[in-house]
Amino acid sequence: MSNATRAAWLRLIRSENVGPVTFRQLVDHFGSAVAALEALPDLARRGGARARIRVASEAEVAEELATARALGAHFVAMGEPDYPVRLAVIEGPPPILAVKGGSGVCRRPAVAIVGARNASLAGRKFAGQMARGLGLAGFVVASGLARGIDAAAHEASLDTGTIAVFAGGLDRLYPPENENLAARIVATGGALVSEMPFGWEPRARDFPRRNRLISGLALGVVVIEAAARSGSLHTARFAAEQGREVFAVPGSPLDPRTEGTNDLIRNGATLVAAPEHVIEALAPILGQAPPPSQVSEGAGDDLDRPTDASDLARRVVLEALGPTPVGVDEILRATGVRTGELQLILMELAIAGRLERHAGGRVSLLP
């Protein structure tokens, strides 16, 4: 990818109301990020935006690129060799990632290990044993650099390869107490990864978004000590939606920190008590390459890519939408609108900040 194209991709994904799914649709529809950037203001107006949307400037992106270089980081885009292969095929993969450290670990098969921040001594010890065993078997260990289970898993896999996924920018480490661990991950050839801009302070809503990347990087997710409504269960749910294997380590029914993991097992997750159990379960799929999936510029001319939609089409699509998520296929069947026309209308609504996207390709209208 040329530097100019990389900068255009960054501008587009950093622009207001452009998430990973909308990014892909914009590039597919307009053929390039540059063309999509030019179309954003008009799309927002047609979608009913109440104010002019913010389009990231060339100066903003130049500053972010300079910040990355100063911190020893770089950007990897979908389709490039160092972009994590399995992450590319999830629903809504980030089109571009900030990476600090060894990109080579992102090309290797990975297993995610997640769990409680307030983990017990036994839980942290087992996380270390699991990470070491998986590392010796050739797996990279992915996690979120949080306290407890995450930190124990990273620590035990420093010598064999580990990836830490940030909820904020790579220059906004959370929690700060793991600064030394993050430095050692980079020093030993591991990687720190984020889809968020440099300078972005992580908020509560950013951690589920981070968790979908942790599961997306991996062939499977091992959950060790998770309370009933913990973020680790979000990671397990994302893993299931992404077609990944979900493993859970059983715990005492008297310990609230293991209530979530025991429920996972009861609901179909694979019970594991040793690294060998995970390795054995993943062996059949290790040699299976995921289907190719990438954002490419210069989409084919035969695509249904209308430049505008009729007033009638907009009206019937808006009537079909509401606060309850509905599938795009269902909207097509109910309205009779052409696929390309519907995608254009949904893009307009998304850029205007009026559309919310949900798992499974479902959408809903924001008030």
Rank of each mutant, 00 (worst) to 15 (best):
Q288H: 07
R237G: 15
R54F: 07
R212T: 10
R108L: 12
L170A: 07
I345K: 01
T160L: 04
A127R: 09
A289E: 11
Q242Y: 04
T335E: 01
I113M: 07
M347T: 10
A239H: 07
F166V: 00
S57Q: 02
L254E: 13
A320E: 14
A146D: 00
N17C: 12
G102T: 08
L282C: 07
L213W: 08
A183E: 12
R45M: 03
S215N: 14
R147E: 12
R117Q: 10
N180C: 08
R46T: 14
G72N: 07
A334P: 02
I185F: 05
V249I: 13
A156G: 01
P94T: 06
R45C: 02
A39K: 14
A44W: 12
S194N: 01
T335S: 11
P256E: 07
H74M: 00
G135I: 05
V328Q: 13
L321N: 03
S57E: 05
S252R: 11
A151I: 02
V222C: 08
S293H: 13
T162P: 09
L136R: 13
R6K: 15
A164T: 07
A153V: 03
A228Q: 15
I53N: 04
P256I: 07
V193I: 14
A68S: 05
F247H: 01
A98S: 15
I163K: 03
S120Y: 12
T162G: 06
A44F: 11
A152G: 01
L97S: 07
L158G: 01
T261L: 04
K100G: 04
E280G: 00
E330V: 09
R338Q: 14
A204Y: 11
